[in-house]
Write a protein that binds this DNA or RNA. Sequence first.
DNA 1: CATGAATGAGTTTTCATTCAT
DNA 2: AATGAATGAAAACTCATTCAT
Lengths: 209, 209, 209, 209
Amino acid sequence: MNESSQTSSKAGPRAPRRDRGHARVEVLLSAAAQVFADKGYEAATTTEIAAAAQSSIGSLYQFFPTKQAVALALIRQQSADLGARLAAMAEASAGWDVDEVARRLAGALVDFRASHPSFARLIDTPGAPEAVVLDVRRGMRLQLAAILAPHAPALGRARLMAVAAVVQQVMKSAVALNDDPAADNPSAARAALAELREMLRVYLGAALA
Amino acid sequence: MNESSQTSSKAGPRAPRRDRGHARVEVLLSAAAQVFADKGYEAATTTEIAAAAQSSIGSLYQFFPTKQAVALALIRQQSADLGARLAAMAEASAGWDVDEVARRLAGALVDFRASHPSFARLIDTPGAPEAVVLDVRRGMRLQLAAILAPHAPALGRARLMAVAAVVQQVMKSAVALNDDPAADNPSAARAALAELREMLRVYLGAALA
Amino acid sequence: MNESSQTSSKAGPRAPRRDRGHARVEVLLSAAAQVFADKGYEAATTTEIAAAAQSSIGSLYQFFPTKQAVALALIRQQSADLGARLAAMAEASAGWDVDEVARRLAGALVDFRASHPSFARLIDTPGAPEAVVLDVRRGMRLQLAAILAPHAPALGRARLMAVAAVVQQVMKSAVALNDDPAADNPSAARAALAELREMLRVYLGAALA
Amino acid sequence: MNESSQTSSKAGPRAPRRDRGHARVEVLLSAAAQVFADKGYEAATTTEIAAAAQSSIGSLYQFFPTKQAVALALIRQQSADLGARLAAMAEASAGWDVDEVARRLAGALVDFRASHPSFARLIDTPGAPEAVVLDVRRGMRLQLAAILAPHAPALGRARLMAVAAVVQQVMKSAVALNDDPAADNPSAARAALAELREMLRVYLGAALA
DNA sequence: CATGAATGAGTTTTCATTCAT
DNA sequence: AATGAATGAAAACTCATTCAT
């Protein structure tokens, strides 16, 4: 899926020649996901990542030239995963009505961010290389647009992309509401999330009409 | 609420007792705002803040016991400012219809975040002390609720707070769209913002009805 | 008593012209005694000393040119006090037998160190200027010798000074035993002190015979 | 007792896993001994210790998490050494009379402190963690008691510990007399030391009788 | 004299990255 | 490849001392 594009990339992991190395890379990346999710990009240390992967600092640098490269590989991996989910949804969404699209989108993206907690941290935080982050964001918007397009044949390209951008932001908000224990009580958090879903439904209903 | 009790606070600035001290604190805080806005909390250095304020590092630590205290003081100062703006809006909003409320809210908050670029960085970033950040967020939600309440007399308290939480997230999204040069071109950014405003209008229209 | 010698000293407090200044110096010195006793010379800060004296650093430096000068003045003051006590004892000791001399010496010196806790810290610690410390120690030995001499007319000068040096060390030990909560229980500390007194008694009995 | 569990200790050195690491730790510790002996705990700097060990500051912190940990490791190392000497003496002392015990004890402990000049500085100074220091002192008293016990079968446990505590203080005094160039001349220092030895002899003769 | 702000060299500690084994 | 030691620039923070008011 991505073995050819990754190898040619400047900052990606060096191509491991053997399965052992490949496995090590995977372990390192999931350790990195843990640590980045817990502490954020800046506060995470390469030593801690290596330790969490039961590996040594030397090993980590065998596969990743810099700390940034680790974050980058992680972003690429996770955004590929996200891309696959959105692609699947694009195929399935043909028969849905707008309400269902709204509901499914909300569900899918909240799920994704919940199961990839480092994703938000890395993508909304300084430290990760701008260019890649922007690419990922644009890619996601394009996929959202692809999902929305069939339900709004009348919308121009520009307007469609604007809608996609708004939907993307709503997704981010969902995660924020989920994480923030600031709501006076857990039920308040749930209520806010329901409210957000409602906003998306109403809005898409109006925008795609 | 807390503008008078700063001295007794654990991590607040040491109260200056001379005019020169007050002036220095102001200069330091605006330098800090610059630097935090540019680099984020972690990457900002106290040395750089002091230099930007044309003072020595010793002077900074004369008034702020830690780097975190600087961020804190900044958050408090700026959230007091935001609070004042929302309070003013609450008074003026009596005669507005829902559409106008949506428009004004969007305008005010986007303006605020645009003129206080460090605010978002500090409040959405680890490093700032959780308790204060949560307080600020809750305070803002309460003020939003106060603005919305008169236009939705039928809404229960819980529902109202959920709506306020959603509006708060929309505001954050507006800033993100504003900052993110990811949109393919400047006009796309403007379109997305307009779209966001539209979402708010439609949503508030439905929710407050 | 000491107003003329102190003024001429290079590092002593500047002669205060007024009573107000004089009082301030006293307060500063007793604050310094507190702080030095608590933290030792190095860890004590001039700011803390000034604060403990309800004064400002500026004021402290009005009277003492350096931190070392504060310690010095304190040592001088306290050793003058000690000197007075020993002088008094020298006069009174004519009629005592050796046992009584031992008992009184032990009592007097333990008392003194207990009521001047900073003395030991400053005199046994680096930081205080060597020359003064050595002077103080020598002075104390001379006074001890003066007390002991009448009870050991046969002893040569050199031997007498050696005995005085040993007695001085025993005094220091008494303080150490007093302070050290290492003894398994308080009664053990008392037992050790009694033992020390016994050692002094036996030893002086033998040495002065 | 504690020679095997260093790794699990909270503030101990990180265990080196390579020969090079072990060697480096040794070098660092002896450099630290030098510097601590010269300047005392507070005035010694980690930078200077690293330089004296011809390593980088980073290497020091690779093995010791804090400056205090360096002092701690040194105390532990040296007190283990001292413990071994005392243990050896305990075995050999069976056939000695009290005079010989006094002489040998004095000799051994003065020797030890003379060859480990940092020991006294660290153990009598604030900065070293209290708990460890107290442990070391208690251990030493126990060993002294073990040496003295056979020569005073009639002494109760409590009395024996008190005697041991006194002997310990005498040892400290010996070092102080040794170090202190305050005596009017070198021969005076020697005389005082001889006098101290005499005190110990007389005292132990009386106490153990 | 009193006060508290200003200064900056110096201290401990961290951490990404490189190297030797 | 794997490991862990080596490195040193850089960061946060301290504190004796000087200065302006």
